[in-house]
Design a binder for these strands. Sequence first.
RNA 1: GGGGUGGUAGCUCAACUGGUUAGAGCAUUCGCCUGUCACGCGAAAGGUUGAGGGUUCGAGUCCCUUCCAUCCCGCCA
Length: 442
Amino acid sequence: MERTYLKDLPNLVGSTVKIVGFAENQREQSAKLTFVDLRDITGKVQCVAYNLEGSENMRDVTLESVIEIVGLVKARPEKAVKADQQLGAFEIEVKEYKILSKSEGLPLQINAKAQNESEADTRMDYRWLDLRKPEKLLTFKVWTELERAMIEYWTTNNYMEIHTPKILGAPSETGAEVFEVKYFDRTAYLAQSPQFYKQMAMAAGFERVFEIGSVFRAENSNTIRHTTEFTGYDAELSYIDSHFDVMAEEEKLIAFAIQKVVEKYGEEIKKTMGVELKVPTIPFPKMTMVEAKTILAKIGIKSEKEGDLSSEEEKALGNYVETELHHDFVFVTDYPIEVRPFYHMRHEDNQKLTKSFDLMYKGIEITTGAQREHRYEKLVEQAKEKGMNIELIQFYLDFFRYGMPPHGGLGMGPSRLLMKMLGLESIRESMFIFRNPRRLNP
RNA sequence: GGGGUGGUAGCUCAACUGGUUAGAGCAUUCGCCUGUCACGCGAAAGGUUGAGGGUUCGAGUCCCUUCCAUCCCGCCA
């Protein structure tokens, strides 16, 4: 007998079906009558076992056990439906059931009986149980659609997908700290970014590339928006005139992807998470760092350091953009060279400023991008000025010696984007499995 | 890495100024109950109060050390 998804039950009243899932709740009404609420990936249904012969009448079903039920789909008695808020107008009259895998006493409470959600640390220890909650599952349905839409955007706009090595002979120089790994008798590094290789793709004539891959940051950061290993979305494109071309691509990409998410899950997100997800308008607001600082000064946020935004400033700017410009996103451009890596291109008329940008979303940074310096001599000069070990990065500099198109690109953190899209309280909630400086399991 | 807050049963929490045997709900096990839906009723089991040291007649409670968690800052996406 074929398994039936719970969402399809309303069309199957009167027929006998086989359903499978987790036992979310169990109510022993008597020795002869037991209710079990079954949950699968599409929904929930109440299953009624009355006086079953040759079994324990579902009294042996512990919470979260995996069970298989064969039963009759019935409209629920009218009285029962009125009283019920949680479960639908249909139920299953159990004919037979099988416990496929019995659950022990749970280490955290995951059904409606839980008065408080378990602490984050406990939930992360038992992430697979935490994720059984339908609202947590939704995060990853949304992630899937977001990523699918971005791939659709990229592939229909002539980007090629690449996969670059994560074990590197030299750090990828994003400015972030790097993990060392033993590589036979040498030291290798985990990629902080596919930066060098997506630029190599430009040298290879790919013109436009994107990559979805893991990035590693050896930073002892303990905040709700940091993690030591996360998925990065990277894009790089050739023959641009400036960083504005990169920003134009990114805003189209994000608006397209969010639109797809809203179309598919907007209602469900509103219902389960209480968040009204808006499709952002194009173009996104843009301002230079100097302009951002001026605005912040005007609204009374003191600047802690020149040429960069503190997290307080990022939040304040996010609020300002939301209330004054009615937008969730804002590009901040023209960062000074001190806070940017050597490969960012500088303005022709101001060698102190880079043709770079960060994209802020609801007060946090989700992207860094720039036009890259593609002229070999200039690049070497900037690397030296930054005190780079030229020998160590010569393999990268060589990409620029035999003709390199002008290009630029960006790196985005989807887990941060998701966190803000869905109003999650921490980045660990938007990741399948979370890593921080201390957590290596599960 | 710096700072704040916290750590009590499997989970979520309680325990007044230090005071007898550290409690409750849920979960688990057992008993009762034909319509519950956070079902209800009864019972059992469950604890080195994160760890180590100290003060005291007496420490979950006060002090020191240490570990862990969490939030904020820094770093960054």
